Simulated assay, not measured.
Amino acid sequence: FQFHQLLPEFTALENVMIPAYIAGKKKSEAMQRANELLDFLGLTDRANHKPAELSGGEKQRVAVARALMNEPAVVLADEPSGSLDSKNKAELHQLFFDLRDKFGQTFVIVTHDEELAKLTDRTIHLRDGLVEHDSAADNLTQTELPSQDVAE
């Protein structure tokens, strides 16, 4: 989501529907799901607006809706709030947890934002490509820890 990659000639609704079309879903089914997602994200009144008519936060939420369109089990997000102001950033962070709770999806978020990292269920810190700290290990005894071997 770092860059929204919304297609400028399509409305927010159409941008959200594109993955469903690629998956071969019927237009009515795609539209129903897209409207559900846009409603959940507070964008119902912006559905017929093109990206140039949307704020940065709105574009970000359209991109989130598009990513969720085909109900993936896992959503990968690379610096999802990097281009947002503090208000929209806080709203997006809360949105990830709301989406997790409502749709049961797992979010793998790559971020330098420690505020966001502190909110997550599990945090893995990497340094130079190696695991420096895994918060899941904090709850395990030393004998239960998984191997930290790294394949070269």
Rank of each mutant, 00 (worst) to 15 (best):
97 F>G: 09
43 L>M: 04
54 L>H: 01
69 M>F: 01
97 F>W: 14
77 A>L: 12
90 A>H: 07
13 L>R: 01
87 K>Y: 11
152 E>V: 07
8 P>S: 06
25 K>Q: 14
122 R>I: 03
70 N>K: 11
111 T>F: 11
119 L>R: 15
56 G>Y: 02
126 L>E: 04
69 M>A: 03
45 D>F: 07
89 K>H: 05
94 Q>R: 13
40 F>K: 02
73 A>N: 13
114 E>L: 12
104 G>A: 13
71 E>K: 15
74 V>L: 07
36 E>T: 05
81 S>V: 13
57 G>S: 02
19 P>Y: 01
40 F>W: 03
77 A>N: 09
110 V>H: 11
94 Q>A: 12
30 A>Q: 01
33 R>A: 01
3 F>A: 13
60 Q>F: 08
86 S>W: 08
83 S>E: 14
11 T>S: 15
29 E>F: 04
1 F>Q: 14
137 A>M: 13
110 V>T: 12
151 A>H: 11
151 A>N: 12
110 V>N: 13
114 E>T: 13
104 G>N: 15
36 E>K: 03
104 G>V: 07
115 E>Y: 03
87 K>T: 12
76 L>N: 08
19 P>H: 06
60 Q>I: 08
133 H>E: 08
25 K>H: 06
95 L>W: 05
80 P>C: 09
52 A>D: 10
63 A>H: 06
58 E>A: 03
46 R>G: 00
150 V>C: 02
73 A>Q: 13
51 P>Y: 01
3 F>W: 12
4 H>I: 12
36 E>I: 00
13 L>V: 03
71 E>P: 02
152 E>H: 09
53 E>Q: 15
20 A>N: 00
37 L>W: 03
147 S>E: 04
95 L>H: 06
8 P>F: 07
2 Q>H: 04
85 D>V: 04
17 M>F: 00
33 R>G: 03
8 P>D: 12
35 N>T: 05
97 F>I: 08
97 F>E: 12
34 A>W: 00
112 H>S: 13
41 L>A: 02
76 L>H: 08
61 R>F: 07
27 K>G: 03
130 L>S: 12
94 Q>E: 15
39 D>C: 10
53 E>K: 11
77 A>H: 10
146 P>T: 04
12 A>C: 11
150 V>P: 01
54 L>S: 00
120 T>I: 08
82 G>Q: 10
105 Q>W: 06
8 P>H: 07
25 K>C: 02
68 L>Y: 05
100 R>G: 11
135 S>G: 01
145 L>S: 04
51 P>D: 00
89 K>V: 05
68 L>Q: 06
94 Q>W: 07
70 N>Y: 09
109 I>R: 04
111 T>Q: 11
114 E>P: 02
81 S>I: 12
22 I>S: 05
2 Q>Y: 01
54 L>Q: 02
98 D>V: 11
84 L>H: 06
92 L>D: 04
63 A>M: 10
65 A>M: 04
149 D>N: 10
51 P>W: 00
128 D>N: 08
36 E>C: 02
131 V>M: 10
142 Q>Y: 10
89 K>L: 08
